[in-house]
Nucleic acid binder design. Structure first.
Length: 250
DNA sequence: CGGTTTTGACCGGCGC
DNA sequence: GCGCCGGTCAAAACCG
């Protein structure tokens, strides 16, 4: 091998290394963003499960309006955070129930519109749902549930209860919050290495085939009821991001 | 054709 | 009383 060949070989290697460094840098940048989002979500979840989290949309006017209007309804308010796909602009939070949208508003504190839903399974069902994108992270949908369904959760065709398919539900008690660590990944149905069903299009029933995903969600839902879960989750998330290069992408 | 979504209008509570 | 704001209504449009 003469000097020229060595030079070109080195140059090629340098090019490969350069592109690899560039790729790693970009990857690191994405992961840093993911880490920040996950950190925020973890601390949020931790605070919620410790009972320290109060209503985050702390517009005093809104709160006082709600108080004045419906004390009873406020006693049964729960919130769900769901990560939506970046290209999906619909305000749809799949939770196993069928909802009919009856209004949409732009609110003062958030440029994203807020959608209002009622349960469409039973006309007399008092439960209402508000869905709005998070101010800080528009990929996160914040669903606020008011009241409780006066009917059973719909049943999946395979006999399993249709648990919410995109969220990890905490107990739906007063001001409780739920959390969905839906990391967006290039594979549309892959989240944190688990396959969650993603349904597209309008008016498709929320209780179609859920198979093994329901068991996964049951398991994860049981974890969220564990008081020690949040600390373990935070540690696991940090560990996964550091050790698994394709853990989650933004 | 029936159920759902869209969207402008309307209502009621609150602060000034 | 007035204006602001969130929530709801309802007619038209849309869709399977």
């Amino acid at each position: 091998m003469d000097g020229f060949e060595q030079d070109t070989s080195l140059a090629n290697k340098m090019q490969v290394l350069e592109s690899e460094v560039k790729r790693l840098y970009q990857e690191n940048e994405k992961l840093s963003i993911s880490l920040e989002v996950m950190k925020k979500n973890c601390s949020f979840l931790q605070a919620c499960l410790q009972g320290k989290q109060t209503q985050e949309t702390s517009d005093p006017r809104e709160d006082s309006n709600k108080r004045a209007r419906n004390e009873v309804a406020k006693a049964k308010i729960s919130r769900v955070l769901t990560r939506a796909n970046p290209g999906d602009f619909r305000l749809v939070v799949k939770d196993g129930y069928q909802w009919r949208k009856y209004g949409q508003k732009i609110t003062k504190d958030n440029p994203s519109p807020r959608a209002y839903f009622r349960c469409s399974l039973f006309p007399d069902c008092p439960v209402k749902k508000k869905v709005q994108r998070c101010v800080e992270d528009k990929s996160i949908l914040v669903a606020t549930y008011e009241g409780e369904h006066n009917h059973a959760v719909i049943e999946a065709p395979n006999g399993l209860t249709a648990f919410p398919d995109c969220t990890i539900m905490a107990a739906s008690t007063t001001n409780s919050l739920s959390f969905s660590p839906m990391g967006y990944s290039p594979e549309p149905n892959t989240t944190l290495g688990l396959a969650f069903p993603v349904r597209e299009g309008r008016r498709r029933p929320c209780h179609d085939s859920m198979d093994s995903n329901i068991r996964i969600e049951e398991y994860v839902a049981s974890l969220t009821r564990d008081p020690n879960f949040t600390a373990a989750l935070a540690a696991a998330v940090a560990h996964s991001i550091v050790t698994l290069p394709h853990f989650t992408r933004i």
